[in-house]
Amino acid sequence: MGQEYRRTTTTVSLINYHFIFCPRYRRKVLSGQVEVRFKELVQELCTQNDWHIAVIEVMPDHVHLFLNVLPTDSPADIMGKLKGATSRDLRQEFIHLNHLPSLWTRSYFVSTAGNVSSETIKRYVEEQKTRG
């Protein structure tokens, strides 16, 4: 998939964010059905907010998410919505996650595709699962 330009009534944009975020205490809780459901929830949120997922990779203890978004969406707002909704829903559906005071840490990493190509970031994210 090449670059995806977004068009609103007055703006054409290419804003891609690479997010990395972790469960609280870097616990390895994102596997099996939790991983499957997390990906479904992220897809639903992205559709509702008009964010396009270029790549998502979920490891047991962290998530890589590469999104194409509109210029009206800040990284802080995106993370707030994603972490808030997924934490609430996953903790309701998977009772074993309630032992954590919250599902996600308050921190996250975000970068734009300014210094490297989107293809490089996508390849990096996709290769995360194959690393030993």
Results as ranks from 00 to 15, higher is better:
residue 132 G to A: 10
residue 122 K to V: 13
residue 110 V to S: 05
residue 28 K to Y: 09
residue 85 A to I: 15
residue 35 E to A: 05
residue 113 A to W: 10
residue 73 D to E: 12
residue 114 G to D: 07
residue 41 L to Y: 10
residue 15 I to N: 11
residue 50 D to F: 06
residue 25 Y to M: 03
residue 12 V to W: 14
residue 23 P to Q: 01
residue 123 R to T: 13
residue 92 Q to H: 08
residue 29 V to T: 08
residue 34 V to W: 04
residue 23 P to N: 07
residue 107 S to I: 01
residue 125 V to H: 02
residue 94 F to T: 05
residue 53 I to E: 01
residue 54 A to R: 09
residue 81 K to T: 14
residue 73 D to S: 15
residue 27 R to W: 03
residue 96 H to I: 01
residue 73 D to I: 12
residue 54 A to W: 10
residue 123 R to D: 11
residue 88 R to C: 11
residue 15 I to Q: 07
residue 70 L to T: 10
residue 109 F to P: 02
residue 80 G to Q: 15
residue 6 R to D: 08
residue 18 H to I: 07
residue 77 D to Q: 13
residue 84 G to T: 06
residue 79 M to K: 08
residue 54 A to K: 06
residue 50 D to K: 15
residue 130 T to S: 11
residue 51 W to F: 08
residue 44 E to N: 07
residue 91 R to W: 04
residue 79 M to F: 12
residue 83 K to G: 10
residue 119 E to S: 06
residue 115 N to T: 13
residue 126 E to L: 14
residue 90 L to R: 06
residue 121 I to P: 04
residue 94 F to V: 00
residue 60 P to L: 00
residue 53 I to H: 09
residue 15 I to W: 09
residue 115 N to I: 07
residue 42 V to F: 13
residue 18 H to F: 06
residue 60 P to Q: 03
residue 77 D to C: 06
residue 39 K to F: 05
residue 113 A to K: 07
residue 56 I to Q: 03
residue 6 R to G: 06
residue 61 D to P: 10
residue 123 R to V: 11
residue 32 G to P: 04
residue 84 G to N: 04
residue 117 S to C: 00
residue 124 Y to S: 08
residue 51 W to H: 06
residue 80 G to S: 08
residue 132 G to M: 05
residue 83 K to N: 08
residue 48 Q to T: 11
residue 115 N to H: 12
residue 122 K to S: 14
residue 44 E to V: 15
residue 60 P to R: 07
residue 118 S to C: 03
residue 41 L to H: 09
residue 81 K to M: 14
residue 106 R to C: 03
residue 122 K to H: 05
residue 44 E to W: 09
residue 45 L to N: 12
residue 61 D to T: 07
residue 29 V to E: 09
residue 130 T to Y: 13
residue 110 V to Q: 09
residue 106 R to E: 04
residue 88 R to H: 12
residue 36 V to Y: 11
residue 127 E to I: 00
residue 74 S to R: 06
residue 49 N to W: 07
residue 41 L to G: 06
residue 31 S to G: 11
residue 119 E to H: 02
